[in-house]
Every structure is written in C-alpha cells, then in structure tokens.
Measured scan of single mutants.
Amino acid sequence: YFQGQLNAMAHQIQEMFPQVPYHLVLQDLQLTRSVEITTDNILEGRI
C-alpha cells in the first residue's frame, strides 16, 4: 500500500467517525490495511 491509498482510506473513515483523531485512524490503518477492520476497531473502542 502506498501512503496516498492509506490517506484516502483514513479520510473515508473520518467521514464516518469525525470524532476520532486522523492520526489515530491512519496509525491503525497502517497495521490493518483495511477500512473494515479499522472501522470495527473504532466501534469496539480499541481506538
């Protein structure tokens, strides 16, 4: 994955969860590489 793709995914998640800091979303995406998994992590309070 290149950074631009991760940034696009992070923006997509931020639209759904504007209360979660962008850098935390991006940090999780770098591990998961998945909008779905990061979204689940937010919903389950891991982020």
Rank of each mutant, 00 (worst) to 15 (best):
residue 30 Q to S: 10
residue 15 E to A: 13
residue 14 Q to T: 11
residue 21 P to V: 05
residue 5 Q to R: 09
residue 9 M to A: 06
residue 21 P to N: 07
residue 43 L to M: 09
residue 42 I to T: 01
residue 42 I to S: 01
residue 24 L to C: 08
residue 13 I to Y: 01
residue 47 I to Y: 05
residue 35 V to P: 07
residue 14 Q to P: 00
residue 37 I to W: 10
residue 44 E to F: 14
residue 18 P to M: 04
residue 14 Q to F: 12
residue 46 R to C: 06
residue 15 E to I: 13
residue 35 V to M: 10
residue 7 N to W: 15
residue 45 G to D: 04
residue 39 T to L: 12
residue 31 L to F: 12
residue 15 E to P: 02
residue 45 G to Q: 05
residue 44 E to M: 14
residue 10 A to D: 00
residue 47 I to H: 02
residue 2 F to E: 14
residue 43 L to F: 06
residue 6 L to W: 10
residue 11 H to V: 10
residue 26 L to T: 03
residue 7 N to A: 14
residue 28 D to N: 06
residue 36 E to L: 11
residue 44 E to Y: 14
residue 44 E to R: 15
residue 22 Y to I: 08
residue 10 A to T: 04
residue 21 P to M: 06
residue 37 I to C: 08
residue 14 Q to W: 15
residue 37 I to L: 11
residue 29 L to S: 00
residue 23 H to G: 07
residue 21 P to H: 05
residue 43 L to S: 07
residue 44 E to T: 14
residue 35 V to A: 08
residue 38 T to H: 01
residue 47 I to M: 07
residue 20 V to T: 05
residue 7 N to T: 13
residue 26 L to A: 03
residue 8 A to L: 12
residue 10 A to F: 06
residue 38 T to K: 00
residue 32 T to Y: 05
residue 3 Q to L: 08
residue 34 S to E: 02
residue 37 I to D: 08
residue 19 Q to G: 11
residue 24 L to I: 09
residue 23 H to I: 10
residue 42 I to F: 03
residue 45 G to I: 04
residue 1 Y to Q: 12
residue 3 Q to I: 08
residue 12 Q to D: 07
residue 47 I to C: 05
residue 31 L to M: 12
residue 39 T to F: 07
residue 42 I to C: 05
residue 47 I to A: 02
residue 32 T to R: 02
residue 40 D to K: 15
residue 7 N to C: 14
residue 14 Q to V: 14
residue 24 L to Y: 07
residue 14 Q to H: 15
residue 15 E to S: 13
residue 26 L to H: 04
residue 23 H to A: 09
residue 43 L to W: 06
residue 43 L to V: 09
residue 9 M to H: 05
residue 40 D to L: 15
residue 8 A to Y: 12
residue 3 Q to S: 07
residue 28 D to H: 03
residue 13 I to K: 00
residue 2 F to T: 15
residue 21 P to R: 05
residue 36 E to H: 09
residue 23 H to N: 10
residue 1 Y to W: 12
residue 31 L to P: 00
residue 19 Q to W: 15
residue 18 P to Q: 05
residue 30 Q to Y: 15
residue 19 Q to I: 05
residue 7 N to M: 15
residue 27 Q to W: 13
residue 42 I to L: 07
residue 26 L to R: 04
residue 14 Q to M: 14
residue 37 I to G: 07
residue 20 V to H: 03
residue 33 R to A: 08
residue 21 P to W: 06
residue 38 T to L: 00
residue 25 V to P: 00
residue 23 H to W: 14
residue 17 F to T: 00
residue 4 G to Y: 13
residue 36 E to M: 10
residue 18 P to F: 03
residue 16 M to D: 05
residue 44 E to W: 13
residue 19 Q to N: 13
residue 20 V to K: 00
residue 3 Q to N: 10
residue 27 Q to A: 13
residue 1 Y to K: 11
residue 8 A to T: 10
residue 21 P to Q: 06
residue 36 E to R: 12
residue 3 Q to D: 14
residue 34 S to Q: 03
residue 22 Y to M: 09
residue 36 E to W: 10
residue 30 Q to D: 06
residue 29 L to F: 03
residue 27 Q to F: 11
residue 4 G to P: 08
residue 19 Q to R: 10
residue 4 G to K: 14
residue 40 D to A: 15
residue 27 Q to P: 00
residue 47 I to L: 14
residue 2 F to W: 15
residue 41 N to D: 01
residue 37 I to P: 00
residue 5 Q to V: 13
